[in-house]
Amino acid sequence: MNVLPEVGQVRSMVVCAEVTRTQIVQYAGASGDFSPLHTDEPAARAAGNASIMAHGMMTMALSSRVVTSWFGIESLRTFGVRFTAPVWPGDRLTTTATIAAVDIHGSCARVQITLKTTNDDGRLVLHGDAAVAIDFGSKQK
């Protein structure tokens, strides 16, 4: 993927059609994070939550796919997010990536991307940014 994006260009993707308890437990097993907030419904309720919630890192992993499917994993230089609201079972997650800046140095471009992930109520659950490096070299001319 060596085509340079334009500032303001947007890509949006449903990164998870429906978060399920099974997927949260699956992520717990994959990540090693078995916190009761993610794996033990009675404990999560006792702590004042409606149910177990997804791991922030699961939402981050899902959200990353917008950037990696656009530019490739190997192009990624930085990726940082804030988790702004819990993700619950039943949530459908949509991530929107917007090109914030394209800085060209010789045959390389550094592209800054802002990311937002929302649930179906339009509530922001994650926001952040990523930077990718694109070497457009010989393919540009």
Binding site: H55, M57, F79, V81, R82, F83
Partner: peptide
């Protein structure tokens, strides 16, 4: 978990 940042 409030924030997570990676540098590759």
């Amino acid at each position: 978990h409030a924030e997570q940042h990676f540098e590759y």
